[in-house]
Amino acid sequence: MKLKGKIALITGGSSGIGKATAQLFIQEGAQVIITGRDKITLDHTVQELGHHTIGIVTDAGSMKDLMHLNEELRQYTSHLDIVFVNAGFGKYAPLELIDEVHYEEMFNTIVRGTLFTVQQVLPLMTNNSAIVLNTSIVTEVGMPNSSVYSAAKSAVQSFTKTFASELISRGIRVNAVSPGPIQTNYFDRSNLSKEQVDSFTTSFAPQVPIQRFGLASEVAEAVMFLASEAASFIVGTELSVDGGFPKIKTK
């Protein structure tokens, strides 16, 4: 029960890495508040996770929703011990086909969403609390068709250090988890067809030294570590969960 008595917020918690993290947090004793865009999916997830879970319908890409997040949270809790800023998705396009809609979707959800989520939860954060951001391996390797997504995630990578520097004096540790290729529903909101997703998966898996995609539960373990007392002396760090890609080569 590493998180016994803790209250945690997980944005984008109705599926994928967010849901897996919520499951693990609850297993380790935490009360969890999850957010999601779709009420039906969110309600189903809350029911599945059980009575230790509260759901708030909110869109990380909407400034209106972000500005009401603090008010929404105060209906259920007076404080937060852990925040996992996880909401986001990826869209891809070659440079010639990137348009303003593509750009704004990525930066609104990933960059603006991360910044203002953290801003809005700060009044609720306790001394000796933790914030974990979700970055990506795309910040470390040039991948075709991912210019905007990579740039947005690079901003979050930068937030990890700047937020950590600003908030450590308030007793708030900020770190990040950087997932590699993970088996989730990540592509559901992307602009890729099923055939493109299948092709990407088939071609990408052999490039991962561990020879498989990761599991959402494996990323959740890393998030829990960074959020727990076991990481009490870790600040401003990005922890990679990527099976060794792209850092090492086996051939």
Rank of each mutant, 00 (worst) to 15 (best):
S78I: 08
H79A: 15
H79D: 15
L80M: 09
L80F: 05
D81Q: 04
D81G: 07
I82V: 14
I82P: 12
V83A: 15
V83G: 12
V85Q: 11
N86F: 10
N86Y: 11
N86M: 09
A87R: 04
G90K: 08
G90I: 07
G90W: 04
Y92V: 08
Y92M: 11
A93L: 10
A93M: 08
A93I: 03
A93T: 05
P94Y: 08
L95M: 13
L95R: 10
L97P: 06
L97S: 13
D99T: 04
D99C: 02
E100K: 00
E100L: 04
E100Y: 02
E100S: 11
H102Q: 14
H102W: 08
H102P: 02
H102N: 06
E104T: 12
E104F: 07
E104H: 12
M106T: 01
N108E: 05
N108S: 04
T109R: 01
I110N: 03
I110T: 02
I110S: 02
G113H: 09
G113E: 06
T114M: 04
L115K: 12
L115P: 09
F116W: 15
F116S: 13
T117R: 03
V118E: 04
Q119S: 13
Q120F: 04
P123T: 04
L124Y: 14
T126C: 14
N127Q: 15
N127E: 15
N128S: 09
N128C: 10
N128Y: 12
N128E: 11
S129V: 07
S129R: 06
A130K: 11
A130M: 07
A130I: 10
I131V: 09
V132L: 04
V132T: 04
V132Y: 05
T135G: 02
T135W: 02
T135N: 02
T135I: 05
T139P: 01
T139A: 11
E140V: 03
V141M: 12
